[in-house]
Simulated scan of single mutants.
Amino acid sequence: MIEAAMIWNEPNNKSHWDPEIDPDWVGFGRMATLAGQAIAAEAPGLLRVLGGISPIDPAFILKLQERGVLDNLDVVALHGFPLDWNLWQIDEWPERLKEIQSVTNLPVWVTEVGVSTFGAEEVQEFGLQRTADLLIGRVPRIHWYSLYDLPRSWEATTRHREAEGSSYYRHFYMGLIREDGSPKLAMRHFHNYAPDMGLCQWFHFEDHRLEDAVRTMRELGVRHLRTGLSWADSFRPNAMEWFDRQMLALEEFDVTVTFCFTPEHRGIAPHHTSAPQVPEEFAEFCAKMIRRYAA
């Protein structure tokens, strides 16, 4: 069921890791190393993936490589959104891949790539087709982000929220399916690219969309799924019951499970982007999840 364990999400993006607390990623490197070792101890051979980097920055990979962090990982992952947030054009994807492939011998996956329909659905339709043309056959795993729009009553996981202007609101329109359950234009094409292209779908705690997502992914022919188990959520009441329900529902897919989000009471600062007070605690969370779902 679990083909890979991803350590954190976008560690070089301040929406997911606070660079003021850990300005040179020394703490992140220590935490990722411990987590990689803990996962290997529980499930030797399970692929360990560096949380998809965004922006795509070879200097960040070299920094981790020089510190020995990549010695405890098996895959480097990238996230790219050239039609929404990145400062490069969609046709530059092969160049972005080569930048990272030139500084590491590890396989490179693209674990988030997508297009918002904030401006127009036709933009996403074009983006899906062009992304498939540019990436299929060039990397072993591609995860389109995402299946569902983010409900407007929820918050996007980003640092400054509405202060980001339209950049923030684009987060709510990344799905192939609208909040009301109706398909967008790009949805009609996705089956043409599965299973070569998988999906990335985050499920919130006790997410009401879980069972519908499974049925839809099955109908689309999706094989590879990336999702997450939140360290912060593990402290909620009935957390293990929800984790069990989620992972059982997803057992027919090859899952890359992402471990991230610092619990407020265990961070150096009370925020999910904070480096933890005790990095060994994050490693033990990873080990516990692997024992429960993969070992």
Results as ranks from 00 to 15, higher is better:
131 T>L: 05
31 M>Q: 13
5 A>K: 07
85 W>V: 09
256 T>N: 01
199 L>R: 00
43 A>Y: 05
11 P>I: 12
62 L>W: 04
276 P>L: 02
46 L>C: 12
114 G>E: 00
53 I>H: 01
163 A>V: 08
289 M>D: 06
245 R>Y: 10
203 F>R: 11
212 D>W: 10
236 R>N: 12
69 V>N: 08
270 P>S: 03
194 A>I: 09
2 I>L: 13
158 T>W: 06
86 N>A: 12
165 G>Q: 08
142 I>A: 02
68 G>P: 04
190 F>I: 12
40 A>S: 15
76 V>P: 03
145 Y>K: 09
165 G>K: 12
78 L>F: 03
21 I>T: 15
254 D>K: 15
70 L>A: 11
99 E>L: 15
4 A>F: 02
114 G>T: 09
121 E>D: 03
66 E>P: 03
125 E>H: 15
233 D>F: 15
227 T>N: 02
161 R>T: 04
281 E>T: 11
292 R>N: 05
188 R>Y: 05
71 D>Y: 05
25 W>R: 07
94 P>E: 02
94 P>A: 03
253 F>M: 02
74 D>V: 11
189 H>T: 02
53 I>C: 06
118 F>N: 00
216 T>K: 15
276 P>R: 08
195 P>M: 08
273 T>P: 01
204 H>A: 14
32 A>C: 09
225 L>G: 01
163 A>Y: 12
147 L>C: 03
119 G>K: 15
231 W>R: 12
107 P>V: 12
77 A>K: 02
8 W>A: 06
75 V>D: 01
26 V>N: 09
205 F>R: 11
149 D>E: 06
216 T>P: 02
193 Y>T: 04
72 N>Y: 14
57 D>A: 10
259 F>L: 13
82 P>Y: 01
75 V>N: 01
176 L>K: 00
47 L>G: 08
91 D>K: 11
245 R>T: 11
124 Q>Y: 05
221 G>D: 00
153 S>P: 03
168 Y>N: 07
117 T>R: 13
110 V>P: 06
149 D>K: 10
111 T>E: 12
60 F>Q: 01
61 I>C: 07
218 R>Y: 11
271 H>Y: 12
